[in-house]
């Protein structure tokens, strides 16, 4: 019995074909939910961060490495947008832990009322907002930058809000 090229490789072709389909199918279904800041964070996306489970891959993930960032300025932020970010429960939510200019808030973090008058260097504030662990590894603040809670522009907007005298 002799098989031509096609017959001989047909099973392989079928296999390869089904593999391709298999590879394509998830990616087309992969249309990962996107987080719209200000709305509830999609649960599926939480699988990308360390979790408590023993069987899921997220159970073996580790925290992102500390990111040192430098801010050279000048500060280009929209203070009004920054205020929205800082006070929105499902966005920056700074208000949960900090009292803010023009707003009462939580008492876990230090009050940021009158922050502008403290004349803190921009670079310092930017680093604290991007990844607080650079200054305090045991801090309770979210790692806004490395885990993409806030973007570079978001942080500049929050800074513009904090630095408004």
């Amino acid at each position: 019995m002799k098989f031509g090229f096609k017959q001989r490789y047909l099973p392989l072709l079928v296999l390869a074909g089904s593999l391709t389909v298999g590879a394509i199918a998830p990616s087309s279904a992969e249309e990962a939910p996107k987080w719209v800041p200000g709305e509830q964070y999609p649960r599926e996306l939480l699988k990308n961060f360390p979790c408590h489970d023993y069987d899921l891959p997220c159970g073996k993930m580790t925290s992102p490495p500390v990111e040192r960032v430098e801010f050279k300025g000048p500060l280009k932020g929209d203070a009004e947008r920054g205020e929205k970010i800082a006070t929105n429960l499902r966005w920056g939510n700074c208000i949960a832990c900090h009292a803010l200019p023009k707003h009462e808030g939580g008492s876990i973090g230090p009050s940021l009322k009158g922050y502008a008058h403290r004349e803190m260097p921009l670079d310092y504030t930017y680093q604290r907002l991007w990844d607080v662990r650079f200054y305090n590894p045991n801090a309770f603040m979210p790692v806004y930058g490395p885990n993409k809670v806030l973007t570079d522009q978001d942080i500049q907007d929050v800074m513009a809000f904090l630095y408004t005298k």
């Binding site: 964070y41 996306l45 939480l46 961060f49 360390p50 979790c51 408590h52 997220c58 993930m61 925290s63 992102p64 939580g106 008492s107 876990i108 309770f140 979210p142 790692v143 490395p146 885990n147 809670v149």
Partner: peptide, 20 residues
């Protein structure tokens, strides 16, 4: 862990515990 890199202990140990 998680999006914020918080632990249960972030809220449930001092200095966070006992605050608002």
């Amino acid at each position: 862990g998680g999006h914020f890199n918080f632990a249960c202990a972030s809220c449930h140990t001092p200095p966070a515990a006992g605050k608002y």
